[in-house]
């Protein structure tokens, strides 16, 4: 079903961004015929959200406005919550007894499958918000498709995430417009962020063997078909923001294959240090 109004509009929300997690105990039995690439596919989805949620959480206590501190923490909670559900499912699909925590805290950078754009340091508020907007619109379209996909449990997680990301897109797009059409300084900062981040966006829509297999099984979306939809939303918001869409340039990427920027290693070193210092401990 297609939205009849812009996804950035103040769509009514059936519920606020939820911090709650459903039960993580094994629920429905996993079909034994899960396609072999479902595990790496789930890791990619989970890692995008875990890494970006982590980056957002770095703002907590340091936001430009108290209300934004609260809003960013909400979005970070949603993203880490989505990642937790996805990693839990990934662990069950893999079938080696790895929990969501084992997957989050005991994989090295080369085993992370997130996009480059989410692992970049948080930068200034313009950089954080523009990055968030570009990812939110991508995530909106991905989750919208996934919730209709053939894998029931994944579709359920996507449906929950889709409700949340509708709010995220609204939040980030409103701030992109506010910054772009605010003061000269905010405009310049937002434009610079957009120019700096643009080269990381083609990676979102470049399907690899995992994506293709998932699409063939009716589980994952056709990424190339999502690109025009993403372009349309981004173009519309950039228009309202008086920001200039950069020209498409050479793609930076490789995250889905475990080839990352220098930044991910530092982030993981911090994120994983306590868990790895006490292997086997419970928290």
């Amino acid at each position: 079903m297609r939205e009849t109004r812009p996804i950035t509009s103040a769509a009514s929300r059936s519920s606020g961004p939820s911090n709650e997690l459903g039960p993580l105990t094994p629920s429905s039995p996993i079909a034994p015929s899960s396609p072999p690439k479902l595990f790496p596919f789930l890791l990619g989805l989970a890692d995008d959200r875990l890494v970006l949620g982590h980056r957002l959480s770095e703002w907590c206590g340091h936001g430009p406005i108290l209300e934004e501190d609260i809003a960013l923490a909400n979005i970070a909670l949603d993203l880490v919550g989505q990642a937790t559900l996805l990693l839990n499912l990934a662990g069950k699909i893999e079938g080696k007894g790895r929990s969501e925590d084992a997957l989050a805290y005991f994989r090295d950078g080369g085993e992370f499958r997130n996009l480059h754009i989410v692992e970049l340091p948080k930068g200034d508020y313009a950089y954080t918000i523009v990055r968030q907007f570009l990812f939110d619109v991508y995530s909106y379209h991905v989750l919208e498709q996934l919730q209709k996909g053939a894998h029931r449990e994944l579709a359920g997680i996507a449906a929950k995430g889709f409700k949340e990301v509708r709010y995220h897109v609204r939040h980030s797009s409103e701030w992109v417009v506010r910054m772009g059409d605010g003061t000269d300084e905010s405009h310049a900062r937002a434009q610079k962020a957009l120019d700096d981040l643009w080269r990381f966006t083609p990676e979102m829509f470049r399907p690899d063997a995992v994506d293709i297999e998932m699409q063939e099984h009716g589980i994952g979306p056709d990424l190339t078909a999502l690109k025009p939809q993403w372009d349309g939303v981004v173009r519309e918001v950039m228009g309202r923001s008086t920001l200039v869409m950069p020209a498409d340039s050479y793609m930076i990427g490789g995250g889905r294959n475990g080839k990352h920027t220098e930044f991910l290693g530092h982030m993981l070193a911090e994120m994983q240090i306590v868990a790895r210092s006490h292997p086997g401990a419970e928290w």
Partner: peptide, 24 residues
């Protein structure tokens, strides 16, 4: 907030983030 980025499990990370958010 100093420990949000180092919380040792996903559940602890979320509860700490939510707690600090509550304080805001």
């Amino acid at each position: 907030g100093n420990w949000i980025t180092r919380a040792p499990s996903l559940r602890r990370k979320m509860t700490l983030l939510a707690k600090v958010q509550d304080e805001a």
